[in-house]
Amino acid sequence: MSNNTQNKDLSLWERINQDQALMNRLHRVVAVGVLILVLLWLFFPIFWALETALKTRAVTVQSPPVFWGFDVQWQNFIQVWTETALPTYIFNGLLIATVTTILSLLIGVPHAYAISMYQSRIGDASLLLVTVTRIIPPITILVPIYFIFSSLGLINTKIAIIIAQTAFLEPFAVWIVKGSFDGKSSSLIDSARTDGCTKFQAFYKIMVPVSLPGIMSAATITWLLSWTTFLSVFLLATGPKAQTVPVGVFALAQDTFTPWNLISAAAIIGAIPSLVLVSVFQKYIIRGLVEQ
């Protein structure tokens, strides 16, 4: 590959640089190829669902499948929006995810701050509690929660789902925000204290603002995980009053009488909030995923 033998006078460093440059160029070609293939693989199902959503019912079941040249039926989206409870599912989902996120941060950020900046036995124990909560599968803990909420008459209420989701997701928030506080020097607190801040002011006036990127990560991840949650809603909600998009789309897809173009339209609409969120907050999501 390299022409080392002809250039005996080349110094070692130049040779290395030449080799590395060739390697880098090769690597970049491979990278572009892999990236294109991966993006095709990742986006084809979404593209196919979008196409199906725009077909008539008859075209969706044609074999071989029709890739282009069909009559585009935008009214499928209107039909699924007006004839199913999809708007309600979306409203419920947005509300539940937003309240869950606010609650998780409200109690999770102070928690993360306390374990990151102060040493105590309770703090260590609470970290263990957070870890255990993340390891226990939701289905296990939903067995007793289902019974407790049933006896309290909380089944099919948004409150029940918000409580359950906050309990499942707040530990994630604690973990991500803790990672952010861990990177901050406690000398910031000391200087704030000498400037006359109380401990609490040092927390919310100094440390929260400097850790805002981490807190934003926790917020976007918590919101996304809540928005996409299926199991707790599936178990705790029995009707459109408290059901969210994943359960709604599931019910639609389970019903064998629903044509695929309408299922696809519902799936595309249900995916849009995620797409918006990830394009706006991608920086925070990546950061949060890495730190979780």
């Binding site: 991966v38 993006l39 979404i46 897809a253 995620s274 797409l275 990830v278």
Partner: peptide, 16 residues
Amino acid sequence: LLLIPWTIPFVISTVM
């Protein structure tokens, strides 16, 4: 772009 499939609700991806 690489991140997108993970952010779509699992059920919706599965339906697709």
